[in-house]
Amino acid sequence: MNTPEIRSPAAFDPERVRGITIDLDDTLWPIWPTIERAERVLAAWLAEHAPAAAALAGSAAALREVRNHIQATRPDLHHDLSALRRESIRLVLERAGDDPALAEPAFEVFFAERQRVELFEDALPALEWLAERYPVVALSNGNADVHRVGLGRHFKAALSAREFGVGKPDARIFHAGAQAAGAEPQHILHVGDDIHLDGVGGLLAGLQVAWVNRHDHPWPADAPPPHLTVPDLLNLCRLLA
Rank of each mutant, 00 (worst) to 15 (best):
P135Y: 05
A158E: 13
R16D: 10
R95D: 06
V209F: 08
D170K: 03
N235K: 15
H215S: 03
R37D: 04
N2Q: 15
T27R: 10
P135T: 09
P4S: 09
W32L: 10
N68P: 00
E163D: 15
D13A: 13
A10G: 11
G142V: 04
P169T: 13
D26Y: 04
I20M: 06
N213Y: 07
A180R: 13
F174L: 04
A54R: 01
A223P: 05
A10E: 12
A62Q: 15
G177L: 01
P30A: 14
D25F: 06
D99N: 14
D194Q: 13
W219C: 09
N213D: 14
A144W: 14
T3A: 08
L204I: 00
W45N: 03
W45K: 06
A171I: 01
L127T: 00
A43W: 00
K156P: 05
A72M: 02
Q71A: 14
A158V: 06
H69L: 08
F110H: 07
N2F: 11
P185H: 07
A181R: 04
V230F: 05
S160V: 09
D122A: 14
A210H: 11
H69P: 00
K168C: 06
A50C: 14
P220L: 11
A144N: 15
L139A: 08
A47Q: 15
E39W: 09
A223W: 00
Q179R: 10
C237K: 05
L119W: 08
L240N: 09
L42F: 04
A131Q: 08
A178W: 03
R37M: 02
M1Y: 10
D25V: 10
A61P: 02
S59K: 10
T73E: 15
R153T: 00
L239T: 01
E94F: 00
R40M: 10
E163Q: 13
L93S: 07
A38D: 08
L81R: 15
F107D: 03
A53M: 11
F110E: 02
A60S: 15
V66G: 02
A11T: 14
A131W: 07
A53N: 03
A62S: 15
L91A: 01
T21E: 00
R37T: 11
W32M: 04
Q71K: 10
R86H: 11
I6K: 12
S8F: 12
L233Y: 04
G58A: 02
D99G: 13
A210T: 12
P226K: 03
L28Y: 11
A181L: 11
W32F: 10
A106D: 03
L234N: 15
E113W: 07
P9E: 08
E108G: 03
A57H: 01
G97M: 06
A131K: 05
E163K: 13
N235Y: 03
R133S: 05
L197G: 03
G167V: 02
L189A: 12
D170Y: 01
K156H: 11
E39Y: 06
R7A: 12
T21W: 06
G165E: 04
L197R: 14
I31F: 07
P33K: 05
